[in-house]
Design a protein around this nucleic acid. Structure first.
Length: 524
RNA sequence: GGCCCCUUAGUCUAGUGGUUAGGACGCUUGGUUCUCAGCCAAGAAUCAGGGGUUCGACUCCCCUAGGGGCUACCA
């Protein structure tokens, strides 16, 4: 109860035990994360176990999807179905003998019994009970069958389940790290099923057998399992097994405060991966859903999360998943990401969208030279005819572009459409913006003058370009904005962009002049 | 219906008997500026309700209400 001894520290073993009946969703990921954080923090082991006792709903796709999701989040496990370990197998469908051995033990000791009632009858009875406003619980019809009758029906091959013989009186209690002590009255518990008629264990039974055999020290799971825990405690006790420590996590809800589900839209981790959220940001946000360090600090790198996580600071209240906050955390992580790393990620994104020119291929298997990105010196005119573009130079150009774009980038996925005009001529154009800024002949005339001015510049760096544009505006006796806005539309097709002088330099002299002239061409 | 859990702004939370109830997202306003984003500054907004206990309750107890979970041969 007090501080764990060193020996106990060493034997901390936690697990994430999803059932492969769907994608890894936000709630499951959060549960996995807390288990993982606890293991990594304490130096314990994190085990992945697949609970596929529901043969009908379990699929291979789900199994793979869950592993993929975990890997994307960077939640690595020490033992699991694909890795093995000393306490396998790690898939429940392969552990049948273990469940049967313990079930038989309970039957032998009179703590469980075979029940031959068929599901239809039971359902009918329950329905009737409901109509009479009685508790729709199993009526324990088979609790005290004569041994002879059991033998006979068994021999006849009658399908049956094995049920737990719940004590009629008394109570169970257990402690929860986040909730404190629970006491449940046995009278409120029924003779629940341990082994189904298809021979597979039910969740409540399998989880006890497995957590015990896998030496799980802390059961960290969603609080939708609180009501199941007294049943499980009964099984632990009946089998003479030692109780693990429990920590029940608050649920994650949707905007309508009901349990998060597909109805609420984006609940699959895959969705966030596809949308190019950063795994570290996802983990950071998920950690905040039900846990806080001091209510002030919210940005955590992965390692900081591990160092600061504590089950004792897990909240009791359910939390509503807030996409705005998720996006904000993602933006924070993007903001703090080293430029080189961001550039590499951006490169991949642009490449798969077909934006990057074919001859741009930085060898990312080798460390990238920091000097490539350092400094703010101007990028030379890269569009010179027939000039070979060196990889490193393009890489640096991309890095500088990202640097200038700064916080405007919310998701890497937005990059291709955002930056297309820098790589291709068929970039999207905002009709309304073109109309607003390039409709008047007078405006186009100014743009032509700007093009002329740029063409004559001796140097083509940001300062020189800016100076040229501003002095032209002075000569024309107009605000610089009168030049800048139409120029922006002409070069990027949009009415918003980062610093226009940088854009001009990134595009290069030839391309800039070409686009300005095209946009300013006199109209019939 | 029964059992169990939860309740601080729209959302995530800090808070453990005495605080101007703190932070964050979002929102509003102003500043910076070539637009946008950002950044800076300011602002609106909260202890579900009712009883107790106490000199004093957001903090402790009870009730009510609301929400959630379990009540499966789902997990």
């Amino acid at each position: 109860m007090k501080a764990d001894t060193q020996q106990e520290q060493d034997s901390i073993r936690v697990r994430f035990a999803p059932s492969p009946t769907g994608h890894l969703h936000v709630g499951g990921a959060r549960t996995a994360l807390y288990n993982w954080l606890y293991a990594r923090k304490t130096g314990g082991k994190f085990i992945l176990r697949i609970e596929d006792t529901d043969a009908r709903r379990s699929t291979r796709d789900s199994y793979e999807g869950i592993l993929r999701g975990m890997s994307w989040l960077g939640l690595d496990w020490d033992e699991g179905p694909d890795k093995g370990g000393d306490y396998g197998p790690y898939v429940q469908s392969a552990r049948g003998v273990l469940y049967h051995a313990d079930a038989q033990k309970l039957i032998d000791e009179g703590k469980a019994y075979r029940c031959f009632c068929n599901p239809e009858e039971l359902e009918a009875k329950k329905e009737e009970a409901r109509l009479n406003k009685l508790d729709p619980v199993y009526d324990r019809a088979c609790r005290d069958l004569e041994p002879g009758e059991i033998e006979r029906r068994l021999a006849a091959g009658e399908p049956h389940v094995i049920r737990f013989r719940m004590p009629l009186e008394g109570e169970v209690r257990f402690d929860d790290i986040v909730r404190g002590r629970f006491t449940f009255s046995n009278a409120d518990l029924d003779d629940f099923v341990l082994i189904k008629s298809d021979g597979r264990p039910t969740y409540n039974f399998a989880v006890v057998v497995d957590d015990t055999r896998m030496r799980i020290s802390h059961v960290i799971r969603g609080d939708d399992h609180i009501s199941n825990t007294p049943r499980q405690v009964h099984i632990y006790l009946a089998l003479g097994y030692r109780l693990p420590k429990f920590a029940h996590l608050p649920m994650i809800l949707g905007g309508d405060r009901t349990r998060l589900s597909k109805r609420h839209g984006a609940v699959s981790i895959d969705h966030y991966a596809e949308k190019s959220y950063l795994p570290d940001a996802m983990i950071n946000y998920l950690a905040l859903l039900g846990w806080s360090l001091d209510g002030k600090r919210e940005f955590f790198e992965r390692q900081a999360l591990i160092e600061n996580f504590s089950l004792k600071r897990v909240s009791k209240n359910p939390a509503v998943f807030d996409n705005d906050k998720m996006e904000h955390i993602n933006a924070e992580h993007l903001k703090k990401m080293p430029l080189i790393r961001k550039t590499i990620l951006a490169y991949h994104t642009l490449e798969s969208a077909g934006c990057i020119p074919a001859d741009f291929s930085v060898d990312l298997s080798k460390p990238v030279d920091l000097k490539l990105i350092g400094g703010t010196e101007p990028v030379e005119d890269t569009a010179a005819e027939g000039e070979k573009i060196f990889n490193e130079r393009e890489f640096r150009r991309l890095a500088m572009i990202l640097n200038v774009y700064g916080n405007r980038i919310k998701l890497l996925k937005d990059l291709p459409s955002m930056l297309r005009y820098l790589y291709k001529d068929d970039f999207p154009r905002d009709e309304h913006a073109c109309h607003t800024w390039l409709k008047e002949e007078r405006a186009r005339e100014r743009i032509r003058l700007l093009a002329d001015g740029l063409e004559e510049l001796k140097y083509f760096d940001v300062a020189t370009v800016e100076e040229a544009l501003r002095s032209l505006a002075d000569r024309l006796e107009i605000d610089a904005g009168e030049l800048i806005h139409p120029c922006r539309v002409a070069l990027t097709g949009q009415s918003v962009s980062p610093d226009i002088f940088w854009i001009i330099v990134f595009l290069g002299r030839a391309k800039s002049v070409e686009r300005l002239r095209a946009a300013a061409a006199p109209r019939g």
